[in-house]
Simulated assay, not measured.
Amino acid sequence: MDLDDSLGIRKLLDTARQLQQDLARSQDELRGTSAQGTAGGGAVKVTIDGRGALQNLAISPVVADPGNAQGLADLIVSAVRAAQETMATRHEERLVPLLEALRADLRPFTD
């Protein structure tokens, strides 16, 4: 398709506008979600929001031994990473299809 074609340009602009709206809507929806991560067989549980900020931390008394501060710290870091991986997967599942649709819509302009 030739970019000089006014219908082609209009379709390209409509596609870009729709993608912008879809991305904004998806980002808003993802910001409103949360993800949980656990470590130590559930002894440490965290919840993060859609932006990745820590919202909640629960530690079982079993692992709250003052003599094992480093072990507890490692469990907390592990639980946070697990929650972040879950959130990253959700972002990917939501945004990749939008980008693939854009690629398909732009294909006529790249031929």
Rank of each mutant, 00 (worst) to 15 (best):
Asp2Gln: 12
Thr110Tyr: 07
Pro61Asn: 08
Thr110Asp: 01
Gln20Leu: 02
Ala35Gln: 03
Gly71Asp: 07
Leu75Lys: 02
Val62Trp: 05
Glu29Pro: 02
Ala82Thr: 05
Ala88Glu: 13
Val62Thr: 14
Leu3Phe: 08
Gly50Ile: 13
Leu57Pro: 00
Ala24Asp: 14
Ser60Tyr: 01
Ala16Asp: 02
Gln84Cys: 04
Arg51Gly: 11
Leu7Val: 07
Gln18Phe: 04
Gly32Glu: 13
Ala69Ile: 13
Val80Gln: 00
Ala104His: 09
Ala69Tyr: 07
Arg25Ser: 15
Ala104Val: 11
Asp105Arg: 12
Pro97Ala: 09
Val62Tyr: 11
Leu106Ala: 05
His91Ala: 07
Arg103Gln: 10
Asp74Ser: 14
Ala88Val: 06
Leu95Glu: 02
Asp105Ser: 14
Leu23Asn: 04
Asp5His: 06
Ala88Ser: 14
Ala35Gly: 01
Gly50Lys: 12
Glu85Asn: 14
Ile59Ser: 01
Thr110Cys: 03
Asn56Phe: 12
Gln20Glu: 15
Ala104Asn: 09
Arg51Pro: 00
Gly67Asp: 14
Glu29Thr: 10
Ala43Cys: 10
Gly32Ile: 12
Ala39Leu: 04
Gly71Tyr: 10
Lys45Pro: 00
Leu13Pro: 02
Pro61Ser: 08
Gly8Ala: 12
Ala101Ser: 13
Met87Trp: 04
Glu92Gly: 05
Leu102Gly: 00
Val44Ser: 00
Lys11Gly: 03
Gln18Ile: 02
Ala64Ile: 05
Arg81His: 10
Asp22Trp: 03
Gln55Tyr: 04
Lys11Trp: 07
Arg107Ala: 15
Arg94Met: 06
Asp65Trp: 10
Arg103Leu: 03
Ala58Arg: 10
Ala79Leu: 05
Met87Pro: 00
Ser78Phe: 01
Gly71Arg: 09
Gly40Glu: 04
Arg103Phe: 02
Glu85Gln: 14
Thr110Asn: 06
Gln84Phe: 03
Leu3Lys: 03
Ala69Val: 15
Arg94Pro: 00
Ser34Ala: 11
Arg25Gly: 08
Ala79Lys: 01
Ala69Asn: 07
Leu57Asn: 02
Gln36Val: 12
Asp111Cys: 05
Ile48Phe: 01
Gln84Ala: 12
Glu100Ile: 05
Leu57Met: 04
Arg51Cys: 07
Ser34Tyr: 07
Val62His: 13
Thr33Met: 14
Pro108His: 08
Thr15Asp: 07
Lys11Phe: 07
Asp4Thr: 14
Lys11Gln: 14
Leu72Arg: 05
Ser26Asp: 02
Ser60Thr: 05
Ser6Ala: 11
Leu3Ile: 13
Ala35Trp: 01
Ser78Arg: 09
Ile9Trp: 09
Gly40Val: 09
Ala82Gly: 13
Ser26Met: 04
Gln20Gly: 11
Gly41Trp: 13
Leu3Ala: 08
Asp28Thr: 15
Leu7Thr: 07
Leu72Phe: 06
Ile59Phe: 03
Glu92Phe: 06
Ile9Lys: 09
Ala58Thr: 13
Gln36Glu: 15
Ala58Val: 14
Arg107Gln: 15
Asp28Lys: 15
Ala82Asp: 06
Gly37Tyr: 02
Ala69Phe: 09
Glu92Pro: 01
Lys45Met: 11
Glu93Trp: 03
Val44Phe: 01
Ala24Val: 12
